[in-house]
């Protein structure tokens, strides 16, 4: 899998792995049944410790995005469209939640926060695909 993690990021290493694999599953780049590298293979590819990588896989497993079949390896779970949408919404909601918390901490009114959200939405170019 082509991605990298960095200990210099404020996001913990295992979370960086979780975020990147999850994004690939949600965008369809990884599909149900696709095999994932073994924990130790991925650790060595990413230059991340074995326990860190193990933790990332347990997290993704707990979210229902991957499954480990004893003796066979780890695979992307078969997810129906509704589940994928729900997980996507969950990810975005948690980022928005963080933004709302920052706004509240800085004493912004709810209307200001939602105006800023609308502006950010308007300003951002739609992704070209």
């Amino acid at each position: 899998m082509e991605f990298t993690v960095s200990p210099n990021s404020p996001t913990p290493l295992y979370q960086q792995i979780v975020d990147q694999i999850r994004a690939r599953i949600l965008t369809g780049e990884l599909r149900g049944g696709d095999p994932l590298p073994s924990i130790r293979q991925l650790a060595s590819d990413l230059l991340a410790s074995v326990i860190t990588t193990k933790r990332a896989y347990s997290e993704l497993e707990a979210e229902g995005l991957i499954i480990t079949r004893a003796g066979l390896g780890t695979f992307v779970a078969d997810l129906d469209a509704r589940t994928i949408e729900a997980v996507k919404s969950g990810v975005v909601a948690s980022h928005l939640g963080a933004a709302v918390r920052v706004g509240r901490e800085l004493g912004l009114a709810d209307e200001q926060i939602s105006r800023l959200f609308a502006q950010a939405l308007a300003r951002s170019e739609p992704d070209e695909r």
Binding site: P7, L13, R40, Q41, A43, S44, L47, A48, S49, V50
Partner: peptide, 24 residues
């Protein structure tokens, strides 16, 4: 990391460079 990949081999290394530890 390559060395411990088979799950049977282990490493102890000393360092005073903490960034070595953050990764492996």
């Amino acid at each position: 990391l390559e060395f411990v990949k088979d799950g049977d081999r282990s490493v102890l290394f000393s360092t005073h460079i903490t960034s070595d530890l953050e990764r492996v």
